[in-house]
């Protein structure tokens, strides 16, 4: 089963995405801050990580950079979910290694499509 890790400090967003992705047949894990998110990623080895940018302890960008620097996780798909909409922010997100970038407020249905698209791109 495809594993998705959601790291967001907003419980509403976390649970809404969890329900939605569960319904689509994904195995979903959730964490509320960057540090535990990275630890969970090392533990679970997900196929896709959905990362909030502004989080306690470690920002989404830092987690993304750490994931890319971890050999077991360097191929994981990363989607940044953030309210930062400036062009420079988007550039920074992609430069840190994100595969996709979703702006808040977001549509859970769109998120599912993007998760599927990232997975499709990563499948050889």
């Amino acid at each position: 089963m495809t594993r998705v890790l959601i790291v967001d400090d907003d419980p509403d967003i976390r649970e809404l995405m969890e329900f939605k992705l569960n319904q689509m047949g994904f195995e979903v894990h959730t964490e509320g801050d960057g540090e535990s998110g990275y630890a969970a990623a090392c533990d679970v080895l997900p196929d896709v990580v959905v990362l909030d940018w502004m989080m306690p302890k470690l920002s989404g960008l830092e987690v993304c950079a750490q994931l890319r620097a971890t050999p077991a996780l360097e191929r994981v798909g990363v989607i940044l979910l953030t309210g930062k909409s400036q062009e420079a922010d988007v550039q920074r997100g992609f430069a840190a290694g994100a595969d996709d970038y979703i702006l808040k407020p977001f549509s859970p249905r769109e998120l599912v499509s993007r998760v599927e698209a990232v997975l499709a791109r990563r499948t050889p």
Binding site: D10, D12, I13, L16, K104, P105, F106, S107, P108, R109, E110
Partner: peptide
């Protein structure tokens, strides 16, 4: 009502 600012599209 608390969910409204976080969502868009058909979910909103």
């Amino acid at each position: 009502a608390g969910l409204l600012p976080k969502l868009r599209g058909s979910d909103r």
